[in-house]
């Protein structure tokens, strides 16, 4: 547990350093978008690196959204635009792909979108150089987004922030977690049912016990999504669960090779329920047409 004095002392030191370096004070604690009006959305970078429960470290980019407006996941769905974040780190530091939390399913049956209301954090995994970890680093974050209610606005932020490298335990703003890798038992296959190619996802039932099951597809040539977000009924024999996803499999359209199943599997509808990033090459792809 950190003493209340430490952040203050660190902030003061960082403030002096920032003044000397010409970094605006505002960027230390309550960074706001620079170079663009902060309409509807405030984007900020938390002043400390975050210690994640798996031991990794992340830079936290926080979005606060005006009530009744919403922003979008990396796949916005039928409309909207993806929230994009990039972070430039000092030499020797490495950054991973930004992670967005499990999105809410928004909109109507006619227009399904995936995104966030109120607040959410984008986590940028960072790894410090082995031999040199200064007390703080200067990070440059670029973000752009679309925020909508009954109309839409685009926004962008360009932030230069001095961030403490003394990582503090991450306190999520949402009960909703972040998508994780699929359990190893999950398999996808293309099968034929009454002359129709269908896509089946199967897995050990115990590996993903939460219900209902929903799926948010990425656009993939050769796999045409027939719509909807489920829930899709799972056929469970006690050991294995089989889920038929409403794709039309059109292998002739898969000009870049066998289509990979990509998207997000949502298990359960409660906020803390898990979600999994899916990127599988289905087995048993028929080599000839119907």
């Amino acid at each position: 547990m950190k003493s209340w004095k430490l952040p203050c002392i660190r902030t003061c030191y960082a403030g002096v350093a920032a003044l000397l370096l010409g970094v605006p004070m505002a960027s230390l604690r309550d960074a706001v978008p620079q170079g663009a009006p902060a309409e509807r959305v405030t984007c900020s970078v938390l002043p400390d690196l975050a210690q994640m429960s798996d031991g990794s470290t992340a830079l936290v980019v926080r979005f606060n959204i005006e009530p009744q407006w919403h922003m979008y996941w990396s796949n916005p769905g039928d409309s909207g635009a993806a929230t994009r974040v990039t972070a430039a780190l000092p030499r020797g530091w490495t950054g991973g792909a930004p992670r967005l939390p499990r999105p809410q399913i928004l909109g109507s049956a006619d227009e399904r979108t995936y995104g966030y209301e109120k607040t959410f954090d984008v986590l940028v995994p960072v790894v410090a150089p082995v031999d040199n970890e200064p007390p703080s680093i200067l990070v440059r974050v670029q973000a752009d987004w679309m925020v909508c209610k009954d109309r839409c606005q685009t926004g962008k932020a360009s932030l230069s922030v001095q961030v403490s490298t003394e990582a503090v335990p991450y306190t999520p703003t949402l009960a909703r977690g972040y998508p994780t890798k699929l359990p190893p038992s999950v398999r996808a296959r293309i099968d034929e049912v009454r002359g129709e190619r269908v896509l089946l996802l199967s897995f050990a039932s115990a590996a993903i016990p939460q219900r209902p099951l929903r799926f948010v597809p990425d656009a993939v040539a050769g796999l045409e999504w027939l719509g909807g977000t489920g829930p899709f009924p799972a056929i469970d024999n006690g050991r294995e669960t089989s889920l038929r996803l409403p794709f039309k499999v059109v292998l002739e359209d898969a000009v870049d090779g066998p289509p990979r199943l990509r998207g997000l599997l949502l298990a359960g509808d409660r906020e803390g329920d898990p979600s999994y990033l899916v990127d599988l090459l289905p087995a048993d792809v028929p080599l000839t047409g119907n």
Partner: peptide
Amino acid sequence: KPVEPATTKNEGCGVKY
């Protein structure tokens, strides 16, 4: 020649029907 890609992911405001 065939159009490749024949489909891409579009983004933007929802059409206000």
